[in-house]
Design a binder for these strands. Sequence first.
DNA 1: TAGGCCATCTGGTCCT
DNA 2: AGGACCAGATGGCCTA
Length: 211
Amino acid sequence: MCSSVEDVYYSFAAPVTDDEDSLGSLHLSSSPSSLGQPSSPAEIQDQAIADPQEKKRRRSRCKNDATLQVVKRNRRVKANDRERNRMHNLNDALDELRRVLPAFPDDTKLTKIETLRFAHNYIWALSETIRLADQCLEKQRETSMVLSGLKCGADIRSPASDSCSWMSSASSSPSPSYCPSNPSSPATSEDYGFVQADGLYNYQSFVNSIY
DNA sequence: TAGGCCATCTGGTCCT
DNA sequence: AGGACCAGATGGCCTA
């Protein structure tokens, strides 16, 4: 057990990787003397103490510090691994999102921020399309009622309108913080400048293809 | 070569 | 205590 601790300590003390190097500098910055590690010639000389008990105490303290650092290092490595996986999952989700979005003609891969902005605008465009379709249906119904001589058209709600009312309300303000004033644009700030034009173009061509 | 994008590491904070 | 999440730092790669 003691030998394994020593092995770990020596392997840790040896300059191996950038990570361990940075960790070493990190620990140096956190007052190594307070950790009991000999960092100065005076402290190293302190180790040449005649008292065997004191010698023993110091040695075990060093081992404890070494194991502590190894434990910290292992925790860091595990945390790095988790963080890497987390970012990979995030990137996978972004790829999924890219796949369901309309592709650009030049087939260039959208960056992360472009993907998110375009998705936002695309959802808005689809919602707007549904809203316009609802309006169109409503008008057709009213027209047919007028033509047939009925007068209760105003009281009749279309099932489609009801079933999609959340969409209509959502589309009239799909994201209040983004689209408070201008219904022709899902975004108000220059944050959405890039996709705004493209989103609008896609929306209009989309609507044109329907009507 | 500057600037943009990205991956990774890292320490801090919050939550379970 | 350990994991998730976050933001800052850093370095590599690519493009105009």
